[in-house]
């Protein structure tokens, strides 16, 4: 008798002791492999990795005149480590939110569109459990995308520019290793900011069966928020915009770390994640799955 038969006949006494956590992790892992093996997402990540390299090459070929270009760009030619920060500034405005929109918008709506959502729910995956897995996977994708930008930029910076002790915004100079630690903090902060956008995308994804609609809607929200953020007449509303705090990690590059602004940003991200996570949960928890 094969092991399969034994497994089947042991059916009624299915091991209950096996932690639900382990099984959750297995589901989570399957979700991650779905995201990170999908050709579309891999192409997107390749582009995300290529842009910092391009940025480095451009800066090497023609260094910008002092005072021009995005933040940190002027420091890049003196210290390659700054390419990571310059790349994050460039990527956080459009490319990273776009990538998150694609993954988050597709997360539930994509399953609904292909019909796999009904199979997942009858398996049963559990609606809340499914949503937790989806959000966790989006979070991991945000981290992976930000890390990818940082690593690609760091490697390019090391190749093309001199690298050494890092001069912080406050004028203090710290060892390279400490500088890299600061970059990692920035990456984590940006991940949190993208995850808040991802939560909005997840909620949108639960509202429709058309993944493209959810992706487009999220990009509209991101771009509208960025435009509103640049209109000074409504500056009172700026702190409540989802993208307002995305680049507010200057404080992490000071000595000592000035955490007041970043804490405010993290609070905003958490609020967005909770509000839109709740919307997603309320929607998916009660929705009639007719796809």
């Amino acid at each position: 008798m094969s092991t399969a038969d034994q497994a089947v006949q042991a059916g009624p006494a299915r091991p209950a002791s096996l932690g639900p956590v382990l099984r959750w992790l297995r589901f989570f892992w399957s979700e991650l492999s779905l995201i990170f093996r999908r050709p579309r997402n891999l192409a997107m990540l390749a582009v995300i990795a290529a842009i910092p390299v391009l940025l480095g090459v451009v800066l090497k070929v023609s260094a910008p005149a002092a005072g021009n270009g995005p933040a940190f760009v002027n420091q890049v030619t003196q210290n390659g480590v700054f390419l990571t920060l310059a790349a994050l500034v460039v990527m956080l405005t459009v490319f990273l939110p776009l990538a998150v929109a694609v993954v988050a918008g597709d997360s539930v709506a994509g399953e609904a569109a292909s019909g796999t959502l009904r199979t997942l729910l009858t398996v049963p995956a559990g609606r809340t459990r499914l949503l937790l897995v989806k959000f966790s996977a989006v979070l991991v994708f945000c981290l992976a995308a930000c890390l990818l930008v940082a690593v690609a930029a760091l490697l390019t910076g090391f190749l093309l520019f001199p690298v050494g002790r890092v001069t912080l915004l406050s004028g203090t100079t710290i060892p390279l290793a400490d500088g890299l630690l600061r970059v990692l903090l920035v990456v984590l902060y940006a991940t949190a900011g993208l995850a808040a956008i991802g939560a909005i995308g997840l909620a949108l994804s639960c509202l429709t069966e058309h993944p493209l609609a959810a992706m487009a809607a999220l990009m509209v929200i991101v771009i509208a928020s960025e435009i509103a953020d640049s209109v000074s007449q409504i500056s009172a509303a700026h702190p409540y915009l989802p993208t307002h705090w995305l680049l507010s990690w200057d404080g992490l590059l000071r000595a000592p770390v000035d955490s007041a602004v970043t804490e405010h940003g993290l609070l905003s991200f958490a609020a967005y994640a909770v509000i839109f996570g709740s919307i997603a949960w309320a929607r998916l928890g009660a929705a009639d799955i007719t796809s």
């Binding site: 959750w24 589901f27 892992w29 019909g115």
Partner: peptide
């Protein structure tokens, strides 16, 4: 089986089954 087959098009048959088995909160890995 509800309203016709629904699977991940880019996965193999076995990978599709593994996906749904992983989603099952009672399935033993």
């Amino acid at each position: 089986l509800v309203e016709g087959p629904a699977f991940y098009r880019h996965l193999s048959g076995r990978a599709n089954l593994a996906r749904f088995d992983a989603a099952d909160r009672t399935a033993d890995r």
